[in-house]
Design a protein around this nucleic acid. Sequence first.
RNA 1: UGGGAUGUAGUGUAAUGGUAACACUGCAGAUUCUGGUUCUGCCUUUAGGGGUUCGAAUCCCUUCAUCCCAGCCA
Length: 562
Amino acid sequence: MERKEERSLNFLERIIEDDLANGRVPDNLIVTRFPPEPNGYLHIGHIKSICLNFGLAEKYGGRCHLRLDDTNPEKEEIEYIEAIQRDITWLGFDWGDHLYHASDYYDQLHRIAVNLIEEGMAYVDSLTAEQVKEYRGTLTTPGRNSPDRDRPIEENLRLFEEMRQGKHPEGSYVLRAKLDMASPNINMRDPALYRIKFASHPRTGDKWCIYPMYDFTHPISDAIEGITHSICTLEFEDHRPAYDWATSIDGIGHTPHQYEFARLNINYMLMSKRRLLNLVKLGIVSGWDDPRMPTITGIRRRGYSPESLKDFVARVGVAKVESVVDYNLLEFCAREDLNKRAKRVMVVLDPLKLVITNYPEGETEWFDAENNPEDPDAGTRKIPFSRELYIEREDFMEVPPKGYHRLYPGNEVRLKHAYYVTCTGVIKDAQGNVKEIHCTYDPQSRGGTTEDKRKVKGTSHWVSAAHAIEGEIRLYDKLFSAEYPGARTGNYLDDLNADSLVVVSTAKLEPSLKDARPGEYLQFIRNGYFMADSRDHAEGKPVFNRTVTLKDSWSKKAAKLE
RNA sequence: UGGGAUGUAGUGUAAUGGUAACACUGCAGAUUCUGGUUCUGCCUUUAGGGGUUCGAAUCCCUUCAUCCCAGCCA
């Protein structure tokens, strides 16, 4: 008997399976949609929604539409529309022929609005924005009907047509649904359906000067596309009655249902397009694709794989409880994925010259180095070894603390893939800084092991001085140093991490790195995971971004010894 | 003295009337040609109070806490 390891269903899967089992889904075809507004770049929070919508459709053999919710021409741009598609494709999802825009439905939406007026279910209101607010009442007191609420149908029709023709200035009129001004739910107090905006739309240009509102557009767009399960975030829970109202308008003919889940929050990160846009505008980051940004494009440039991000989202799960996921989980997912796929390579970030005094001058040996101990199929590469090398400055200490098993006078360590060396001397400059260290090597340890199998506790990475190439290494860290940016002072800019980017220009890289290119996952042994920068990396001028550090249990221990 | 939602280890998420669990974090240790990986162990959980029941995280009552809503944004 086979034992199936069944992952428990999340609440959305449960709803869908129940709907399917009870014949509530037309043609048994699940149809979902991912409906971003093209007013900014997609960020990691959107990945959750993307994975949910595309993932659910995939799991139940349905389809998922990509619909750009472009009903506010003042904020939306073609640049964003294009970036959104690029990002979703990079994640590995495909909407096939089902790319839509809310603006595709402007004609239908307009017709439905006119019908509503004819049915006496919508009216043109001349109240100012200020007055509308006043008439709406408050959270605890009911609203009052607008004096225009009973405007004759003919007049409503005429005014709405004049609005469309551009005969009235912005703000002079608005089309409203006639629902219930006394509703305890503010969204039902005669919501606006159309407003006047003399703004050129990225897709429809100047065809329209009235634009439909979310509560009208979104549900009807869903209905038009035959969406069965319309999944959105918690803050739209209050809009569900409006959603249900719109989808039940005569002639709509299809009834999708809205379900809400908790959006993704991660500590030390900002997840709001508005605030991210602000970081870009203020020049705090280099752009939407700055590797410190939580945008998909930024994370990608940083060196994350789509697989690790999807895994992350899957581990986070879906529920209706608002939650804050630990940044550690993101890094864990990155490391787990990168450990399996990254090519190992040796780079010394902070070089310290090491001279092997008993090694012949002018000689070069080429060692075979495995590319990935986790993947035998990854093969090997050649690395040059010679008398003068660079090792990491922190891999040597003249006076080591307890537990330090790297290089110090008299101690023997392994140079990865090469030889054992023993420190025999320290050369200092006039100020007493260690300039260079001298070692002897054991020719018997060639390749990194000896026949006597004696233990060396430390293994250092190194680069041959004569063969090393130079490059710029960008060490990225969290953009914010506070778990909840802005919680302390009310201004998230007060919590920027001053060390979120450290540029290292002194690094010595093994020569094979001259062939590195963006998209290739790398591990700089003992330093972290890196990727060539997709913007600035060039032949002869390498630039690498640190995706994430390796787990480092030594520095923790060392800190405790203090 | 409005409406809508939600409360399970530090953080996420399971268990849907039958032994509270998985992952991450943290802490120990083993292994290791990366102080990485891998492996082992440990820590800590049903918001409070009542009730129903042989039995409650789960059902009922009640209290408390948190989040969202008063754009002509989405």
